[in-house]
């Protein structure tokens, strides 16, 4: 016998929306992995804030100080123009950290949608795992979780725009020679 759930205690998001949002995030990952950076940029709203704080090792009682605050330094603290500059850099043919290019694979998991006050904005949490291979022997993993605000937009090619992205990495000391990648 198959259980029929009228309403779920876990999620109130309907299957259709969940599917749509997951496909949107997969598409974004695909753009990055296929180095279609200009199409990737189009997925962000013009007022986007793309942010990745730094992180330090702290004891439990001071875990609230683990991530750098919004008025402190960050790995990424970008508006749309800054993201565009990063793409310009990569496309210059002289960005040696990406020339020859890295090979990336973005894996997006555990997508959880929270409905906000406005039906056209969603808070979307996801886990991210990025494998990056470079040259012959460079191997890096960047793992963390993301909090996105997705905004429904009729003008957007794919129905949604990323209006805010916060990325929380699970490394404090970054075990890579650079982050010439996007998460």
């Amino acid at each position: 016998m198959t259980a029929q759930l009228e309403s779920s205690p876990v999620t109130s998001v309907d299957v259709e929306l969940q599917h749509q949002i997951e496909q949107f995030l997969y598409l974004e990952a695909r753009f990055l992995d296929e180095r279609r950076f200009e199409e990737w940029l189009d997925l962000f709203s013009d007022d986007v804030h793309y942010w990745m704080p730094t992180r330090t090792v702290r004891y439990e009682r001071e875990l609230d100080k683990e991530f750098s605050a919004s008025n402190e330094v960050a790995h990424f603290d970008e508006n749309k123009r800054a993201l565009e500059e990063r793409v310009t850099r990569i496309r210059s043919g002289m960005a040696w950290a990406e020339e020859p290019p890295s090979r990336t694979r973005h894996m997006v998991h555990n997508v959880i949608i929270e409905l906000g006050d406005s039906p056209s904005e969603l808070l979307v949490r996801s886990n991210i795992l990025l494998y990056r291979g470079r040259l012959d022997r460079d191997v890096d993993f960047f793992v963390g979780f993301r909090e996105d605000v997705l905004r429904q937009s009729e003008d957007a090619d794919y129905g949604w725009l990323i209006a805010r992205r916060s990325i929380f990495l699970d490394q404090t000391l970054i075990l890579a020679k650079n982050m010439s990648i996007f998460l």
């Binding site: 704080p53 008025n71 330094v73 000391l173």
Partner: peptide
């Protein structure tokens, strides 16, 4: 210093 630090590894 502004709070927070960038820390990483160069091989």
């Amino acid at each position: 210093l502004i709070g927070g630090a960038h820390r990483w590894v160069f091989p």
